[in-house]
Design a protein around this nucleic acid. Structure first.
Ligand SMILES: [Mn+2]
Ligand SMILES: [Mn+2]
Ligand SMILES: [Zn+2]
Ligand SMILES: [Zn+2]
Lengths: 147, 147
DNA sequence: ATAGTTAATGATACCAAGTCTCTTTAACGG
DNA sequence: CCGTTAAAGAGACTTGGTATCATTAACTAT
């Protein structure tokens, strides 16, 4: 039996439909899989979970969802690109390098600071990219995992 | 006749030698080419300029120079990885999206701010990645280049 | 100066992460 | 129900890089 769609999945799909995209069954499979992730994930992880969906379709869906603002790209310290559900609007992440969890960083003062610094350099700010790496609260207590 | 080495190139090579790496002729060619760049560049650009040097050697040299702290990686807005000469130590860049120039951002308050924000989230900061995009002073005045 | 040791090179195969092309399918609007 | 057109999927291709390994050449010690 097909896994039941979460309301989150329904919501993601609705976002796509509002933007004029069709509700196809591969697309529903993709948003369901995404809704089931509990932390950031890669395109390839999604592909492993959806062997029946074409590779191009997965990448196309990810692009649409990023463009719609419901997914955001997350760059890990090693350079790997992951995705995760986004709180709409620009924000950043505190990424735990230990357990892979992430916390959103909303309404911090970075924008103001960057504006100040930029104008000091006679630079007209238009965008920025920031990722913050470290250990989350849980992993701070826990002794480091032996490799 | 072989292009004369700039003192910058000599300096780069010296850094490598100090770290126990041999002064080979492909390596000299690479540091010379790097010393001749006037802005950030990609590995492939370097390759085009050095058709006689093997691909692996170019990537290996870039890695060594990054590890030595004399080159830094720069992530452009579109996701392309570039390199540029580094002022040793951690710093960031103001990248002009118009002309491709970049200004180093030293001693800005970002570290302090991130520490404040992190501890507010009970997060133990260990690193971060920041790139700032916009228009440099020159390009602010100039009307946008027609595509 | 010579020889020995070992780092470094480069040819080539390989790989990861995507993108492009093109034919076929199916969603949706009328 | 039909027609239009978006979307899918197969598969070739691309980009940016890494791994392997036989050969070469820097440096070191004599
Ligand atoms: Mn986010
Ligand atoms: Mn720099
Ligand atoms: Zn953690
Ligand atoms: Zn500029």
């Amino acid at each position: 039996m097909p896994k039941r769609s979460s309301s989150l999945a329904t919501q993601l799909l609705a976002t796509l439909e509002e933007r004029g995209h069709r509700s196809t069954s591969p697309r529903r499979a993709v948003v369901n899989a995404i809704a089931g992730q509990n932390k950031h994930f890669t395109a390839e992880q999604l592909r492993d979970q959806l062997p029946g969906v074409g590779r191009a379709t997965i990448y196309r869906s990810l692009r649409l969802l990023v463009e719609s603002g419901v997914l955001c790209r997350v760059l890990l310290e090693e350079g790997d690109l992951h995705y995760q559900l986004s709180h709409r609007g620009h924000h950043h992440h505190l990424l735990c390098v230990e357990c892979g969890s992430s916390q959103d960083l909303l309404g911090c003062d970075i924008e103001d600071l960057l504006h100040t610094v930029s104008s000091a350099h006679q630079f007209q700010l238009s965008g920025h990219w920031l990722e913050v790496y470290g250990k989350c609260h849980d992993c701070m207590d826990r002794p480091a995992v032996p490799v």
